[in-house]
Design a protein around this nucleic acid. Structure first.
Lengths: 223, 223
DNA sequence: AAATCGGTTTAATTTGTTTTTAATCGGTTG
DNA sequence: CAACCGATTAAAAACAAATTAAACCGATTT
């Protein structure tokens, strides 16, 4: 928590400790930044009007180093513009003072429940944009249209989806989809990528599989 | 969105559509539940005082069926008890009417950014000043603009970044990026440094790669 | 047991991009 | 001012990927 009004800081720290949260407190922006740089936190509660470095800048600093840390802005500044700036700096929530302590606690809980929860963990469905893969029924569809795939095509696509936005090399693919070692002699992978492209891209409006010459392939949604 | 006041529902639907969100609307709790049972949504916006089935119950229904769907309560009920009940029913955010439409939009965005983001999937990112290199997606950007690099250019830049502020000799580069021994006959390195400079410095305000005559090159941020 | 079928792999060709070479230009230094 | 070092450019060579057709393989049918 970074909060320069020591009374508020202390009462919050006490309250949160009682809720079994571990809290470190800094009283100005620079001290807050130091804390974040040398520790590993789940969540940050930031005032905006802080000495030395304001809450927006501190939020941006935290965001640039770690996308996972949750950020709550806690401030008296209550115009919509302030809130928008707060969220743009990377905040996950924005609470206006004065506020009820209980509300802070439930909002913290709501955020933390998302932190270590793997989205999609319960389901056997993978998706990238409008492409949907059902791991149980082994069905794949795009724009609602069903696309029949063979076993190898399905495995390859599953590998791509599980590594979406990440360039995977032919060696990665060979190892994980074909269980073969480094073997330059074959071009099965290229052929299968071509098969997949024909089925999941041809007749559709947007590309999904991109070639990075000399590096591999990457499956990603067109923004 | 489940909202029984048709005027509000319609104006929100219109506004969100303009933000390129796809929105379905129901005007009572049971109709809302039907929508969720037969569709696959990312996010729900729920009023609390709804005919037939109230917002808390609907939120609980959604939660029991899918932990991933984000839920925003949007209601005139503004006591702390109401909020706590909303969050306990599984809400991710709670907005009190009347509210500014812009605030709703940024809060939706803040939630959605968490939805498909794999926490802990520590993104492999290197940065020097405003230059950002993503080792997973193999993307490089400066000042937010994307800069496509070829495989060798990428490897060379990665080597520079990993040795930032350090003068690296051509021999170092040859050894680490080209896997070749000291071979005066070639000038590939000079050519590639030139390629890089064209892509990451030309059209940008500051230099990054400096030549140390007789010693090598150094990548550093201009202070 | 042969023929067929779907799926997988190999091989060869075409196409496109990247990498390397080599020659020239330009500035700095002894 | 010439020798040297690096920058720049264009063209050649090398390489990587896309595409196509045909061969192969195993399961199933005839």
């Amino acid at each position: 928590m970074v909060e320069d009004e020591k009374k508020i800081a202390e009462s919050l720290r006490k309250g949160l400790s009682e809720q079994h949260y571990e809290v470190d407190v800094a009283y100005d922006g620079i001290a807050g930044r130091k804390l974040f740089d040398s520790n590993s936190y789940d969540l940050a509660i930031l005032d905006i009007n802080l000495p030395l470095l304001n809450g927006y800048e501190l939020a941006r600093h935290i965001r640039s180093y770690n996308e996972d840390i949750l950020v709550i802005m806690l401030t008296a500044m209550n115009t919509t513009e302030d809130k928008i700036e707060g969220f743009e700096a990377g905040a996950d929530d924005y609470i206006v003072k004065p506020f009820d302590f209980q509300e802070l606690v439930v909002r913290i809980r709501a955020l933390l429940k998302r932190l270590h929860h793997q989205p999609g963990a319960g389901t056997n469905i993978l998706r990238v944009g409008d492409l949907i893969m059902n791991l149980d029924s082994k069905e794949v569809s795009r724009e609602g249209r069903n696309i029949p795939l063979t076993a190898k095509e399905f495995q390859l696509l599953e590998y791509f989806i599980r590594n979406k936005n990440k360039v995977v090399s032919r060696i990665d693919i060979a190892l994980n989809v074909w269980d073969i070692d480094f073997d330059t002699k074959t071009n099965v992978i290229d052929v299968y990528v071509n098969f997949l492209r024909k089925k999941i891209e041809k007749d559709f409006s947007s590309k999904l599989i991109y070639t990075q010459v000399g590096m591999g392939y990457v499956l990603k949604e067109t923004p």
